[in-house]
Simulated assay, not measured.
Amino acid sequence: MNRPLVQSPGGVTLAGGGPVSATDLRRCLARAPMAVAADGGADRLLAHGVMPEAVIGDMDSLSEAARARIPAARLHPIAEQESTDFDKALRSIRAPFILATGFAGGRIDHGLAAMNALLRHAGRACILVGPKDLAFAAPPRPIALALRPGDTVSLFPLARVGGRSEGLHWPIAGLDFAPDGVIGTSNRATGRRVELAFDRPGMVVMVPRGRLDATIRALTEGGG
């Protein structure tokens, strides 16, 4: 792609147009201080007193009131309709990691589209912050998550994929995962470390929302 619209040496908090709680926004901004909005996510940020550094999308959801408050130089319209605003934002941001809030917990179709975007950008360290858990696309390298015994670790394939694990109650080696076949939801950690590796892109991993810092470390350490 061309030069990214947003560049940050630290994490970026990306807000979508779905529900964004004050608690989630505070948690994300504490770890990723630069606030960016995907289209109507700007309204969510402004409602919490946060001015976005940039707004990226087709601008069909951004309210006129928000548009009037945000400096024009911070608005980055991308007119094409072949991708979602979340996808447009992901491909336009360069940062060590992205915390995405307001993309899960609302409409089911929006949530599915967000998962699609995660997979399309599986090489990016992007974490969806949901009401009860976190979701991310497994990167194209092994990862190690610092969890607690009994923590739920759910695996949902969006493509045919195989892998291996250490520290899961039900090991995954030898399983042929597929969205219309074997899935791996409601697995759990047996100890304080879970290791995962997959043979190709396609797996979405979900862990408890209380493991945000551990997930950030797993996706950024050694992964660039």
Rank of each mutant, 00 (worst) to 15 (best):
P71M: 06
R193L: 15
L99K: 13
G16M: 00
G11V: 02
V194K: 13
L5Q: 05
G191Q: 04
L145C: 06
A144C: 10
R91F: 01
L46S: 03
V161Q: 13
G130K: 00
A138M: 10
S61E: 05
V12T: 05
A137Y: 07
F156S: 05
D176K: 07
F198V: 06
G10L: 05
S165E: 11
V205D: 09
A72M: 00
Q7F: 05
L145S: 09
L155W: 12
L118R: 13
R192T: 14
E82S: 14
A66G: 11
T84S: 13
L75C: 00
G150C: 01
P140S: 15
D58E: 04
G181M: 07
A100Q: 11
L90Y: 03
M1W: 13
A22G: 01
G163Q: 02
A117S: 12
V194R: 12
A79P: 01
S154I: 04
A42P: 01
G202C: 14
A95W: 00
A32V: 02
R148A: 14
Q81H: 09
L29W: 07
F97G: 04
S92I: 03
R193W: 12
L175F: 14
R193C: 14
D85T: 08
G210E: 10
L14T: 13
A22S: 04
D87S: 13
R148S: 09
L25S: 00
V129A: 05
L158Q: 06
E166Q: 15
K132M: 08
D133P: 00
D87G: 08
M1A: 15
L212H: 03
T220C: 14
T215E: 00
V204S: 08
L145G: 05
M203T: 08
L112G: 08
A79D: 09
A15Q: 01
G16D: 00
D24S: 13
F156T: 08
L134Q: 07
M59Q: 12
L147I: 03
L196S: 06
L175Q: 09
V36E: 07
S8D: 02
G167R: 14
C126Q: 02
G41V: 10
A79R: 12
R44K: 15
A30Q: 10
N116D: 15
A113Y: 05
H121D: 07
E53N: 09
E166V: 15
L112D: 07
D43T: 10
G102P: 06
V129Y: 11
A100L: 06
P96G: 11
S154F: 10
C28Y: 00
L90P: 03
L29K: 01
L196W: 04
A178K: 07
I93W: 13
A37D: 04
V204G: 07
S165V: 09
R124N: 02
P71V: 08
A38I: 01
A30S: 13
V6E: 08
P77G: 11
G10W: 06
K88H: 11
D85Q: 12
R91I: 01
K88W: 02
G150R: 00
D180N: 12
L219I: 05
P179E: 14
L5H: 07
